[in-house]
């Protein structure tokens, strides 16, 4: 098992390298730094000098891959590729357009992001599993039918509307919680209630329906009939036999997103003015701050790969067939 995990870890390396090369190609080969400078500076101020200055400030004035005139290892290190892509591995992200250090920014913004994403994840998981289990338990009744209808209807609403609608109803109409903003510490709770609630509701439809099909699929299996033949009550069949089996795909399926919780949720954060990584990313996209977007792509990928690794590990933990085989 240890060998397996080690092997999966090693497998992550070429993937990281691939991502790095892909982002490099995307940011520096599709468009040259000159193109970016023109876009950033706006049409009016484009002069060759301005472009050169813009590039020099950001270190884009070096060769892309190979610095022939430089000496020794500098041939390789004094290039855009090394400075902007290779250094990502050392978590050296450089500076944003506002000249702040990106790594520091990310570190301080992680907290609020997690404060929002973790409750959404946990509460959502519990709510969805509970409802899905209930619908599977009352399968083929009106309760189940209307449950599915509700899920499909909720799936069909854009997450934007959940945020707008929730914000309007709860904050504006009922004056219960603040519309937006954030404070650290205990006060965070009152700012987070609404976004958490909306986050949970927004994902309810599709997850619950998916889990329901997982439960139903599990309930059609032979061992369920065996359990019934033993005279076990339906609730025991459900909780001891079905739930335990269905939780394997559910849990291992969600493990992959756990690391990416650090990234926060893009839309919710920016709507509610929570100073997390999600809103940071959105702002960067809207301001066309390439350095920040590049950093977030890299971090996001690393976290996803960690998630894949955790998925592999979680399989070996929860599924005896994998653990003992």
């Amino acid at each position: 098992m240890l060998g397996y995990i080690l092997r999966r870890t090693l497998y992550a390396i070429p993937i990281l390298v691939g991502i790095n090369l892909l982002t490099f190609a995307l940011f520096f080969l599709v468009n040259t730094p000159d193109d970016m400078a023109r876009l950033q500076l706006g049409v009016k101020r484009v002069t060759p000098e301005a472009i050169a200055k813009w590039k020099a400030e950001r270190g884009y004035d070096r060769p892309l891959l190979w610095n022939a005139p430089a000496a020794g290892t500098k041939k390789f290190t004094d290039t855009i590729f090394f400075d902007k892509s290779v250094k990502l591995f050392a978590l050296d992200f450089g500076r944003a357009e506002d000249n702040r250090d990106i790594f520091n920014e990310i570190r301080t913004r992680m907290g609020p992001s997690l404060a929002l994403a973790v409750p959404v994840f946990l509460v959502g998981l519990m709510v969805n599993i509970t409802f899905a289990l209930g619908m599977a338990f009352f399968r083929a009744t009106y309760l189940d039918l209307w449950g599915v209808v509700l899920c499909v209807a909720m799936m069909s609403i854009s997450s934007l509307f959940y945020i707008i609608g929730g914000q309007y109803l709860i904050s504006k109409l009922w004056h219960l919680v603040p519309i937006s903003g954030y404070e650290g510490g205990v006060d965070a709770a009152k700012f987070l209630v609404l976004p958490v609630l909306i986050g949970v509701i927004g994902a309810f439809g599709s997850s619950t329906r998916f889990y329901r099909t997982l439960f139903l699929e599990e309930m059609g299996k032979d061992y369920v009939r065996t359990a019934r033949a033993k005279g076990l009550a339906e609730s025991v069949v459900m909780f001891r036999h079905v739930l335990k089996n269905a939780l394997i795909p559910i849990l291992t399926g969600v493990v992959v997103v756990i690391p990416t919780l650090f990234l926060g949720s893009l839309i919710t954060e920016s709507f509610f003015g929570i100073p997390g990584l999600g809103s940071y990313t959105i702002d960067a996209i809207q301001a066309q701050d390439f350095a920040v977007v590049r950093s977030m792509v890299f971090i996001g990928s690393v976290l996803y790969i960690v998630g894949l690794l955790l998925t592999d590990i979680s399989y070996t933990l929860v599924d005896p067939r994998v653990r003992l085989a």
């Binding site: 299996k221 032979d222 061992y223 009939r225 033949a229 036999h241 335990k244 089996n245 005896p320």
Partner: peptide, 15 residues
């Protein structure tokens, strides 16, 4: 009591 044809699938895999 009853026993079934496929002992492989008739037993719960995770218990």
């Amino acid at each position: 009591a009853m026993i079934f044809q496929e002992p492989g699938t008739a037993l719960n895999p995770v218990l």
